[in-house]
Design a binder for these strands. Structure first.
Lengths: 204, 204
DNA sequence: TATTGACCCTCACGTTACGTCAGGGTTTAT
DNA sequence: ATAAACCCTGACGTAACGTGAGGGTCAATA
């Protein structure tokens, strides 16, 4: 009725060593052990592991994850909602990075180099510690909260709008572009055409 | 006319130690040194650093980045186009994860647990090594390429469509939702309301 | 029932990508 | 000219595993 490390590892897409490690550091141990000392993971352990992996994907340190999840007030549903918001933020950041890539390409093609802070403004904007601080500081006052939220999300409204537009193009224009054999100079066109091979064929 | 480590570090949002490290391992050294041995970075070095950071963000090992960028065939514009595609793929993955979070929440609320492979199918789908392999293997045949591309992108068409829909809601409904004080049970509503405080107020 | 191959266990040392002093020059601003 | 603010090169510390080493366990099979 339980799962062995190997089974869990395969299902979750992590290594056995990773599960051993999480056990060692007290982050996530199996609920049971067999007579021979084998780790036996329950269904419940799967949910916990999933959450650990979400937090990890979001850049949390394992130690921080452990502290979070061992807190008496911890609640899975709440954690999932936080994770959902963080994933959205991270996606927003990636779109900003795509934007920066496009602008850099423009600069290279036109010979007009970008401003330095513009080149890097997109990095390091997603700091998991900020979310920990969010929890820790308990800025309950609605004003301080709104401030912080606006700062974190930043230009997101614009970004999401742009992304919407991009998606639209992709959904509508894929076939047309591919068939017309448009010369792929625009990165978006490159995406659409899945033309990576052309770009990197001679590396290595 | 150049920049010191500290200046570069501040502009790029990395630590001085990181730049020292990149110099040590031969990934990215300054083009010049001052009389006293100070590292002097040029404008060109900034572009290189930006690319390094993009690759790093995408999960490449520094050693792999070094090999890539030192290849005689390496071209910045081409790299940027590859990065653009990878960023799009990564964004797609994040959206799948958001979806998985929503489904997990549904399962918890309705008491109907998710299938295990469904829970984790979303992890580890983005493997930077795949892209290295892409370059290395040179599957020039268009058929094999199309196959691989389709596998990598997967359900992206649906995902992007859904994401478009979400964005639409966000752009249209933010104020309305916040004003009406809708009870935040739906994660999307939570996002819209920026109601993280409610979720995590009692952690710590 | 004996064996073999696929797992599992616990050390324990190796690796990557930096963080963090330590000890000592350099540059700039007052 | 003297402190504050940087810069340099070691060199050891840390996080999150990877990678065997040496040795039990389990399920199928001969």
């Amino acid at each position: 009725m339980g799962y062995t490390v190997g089974e869990v590892a395969k299902l979750a897409g992590v290594s056995v060593r990773t599960l051993h490690h999480y056990d060692e550091i007290g982050l996530l141990g199996p609920s049971e052990r067999s007579g021979a000392g084998y780790r036996i993971y329950t269904d419940d352990d799967f949910l916990t592991l999933q959450q650990v992996l979400f937090f990890r994907e979001l850049g949390f340190a394992l130690e921080d994850i452990r502290r979070l999840m061992h807190d008496p007030g911890f609640d899975r549903a709440e954690a999932l909602r936080l994770q959902h918001r963080m994933l959205a933020d991270k996606a927003t950041q990636l779109m900003k990075m795509m934007d920066a890539v496009e602008r850099t390409l423009d600069g290279i093609e036109k010979g007009t180099p970008m401003a330095k802070d513009d080149m890097f403004g997109v990095f390091g904007e997603f700091d998991p510690k900020e979310y920990e601080a969010e929890a820790r500081e308990r800025w309950g006052e609605t004003d301080a909260y709104k401030e912080s939220a606006r700062r974190t999300r930043g230009y997101s409204k614009d970004d999401w709008a742009r992304f919407k537009a991009e998606s639209e193009k992709i959904n509508a224009g894929t076939a047309a572009l591919m068939d017309s054999g448009v010369p792929a100079v625009d990165p978006r066109a490159m995406d659409l055409a899945e033309a990576a091979r052309l770009q990197i064929d001679h590396w290595f």
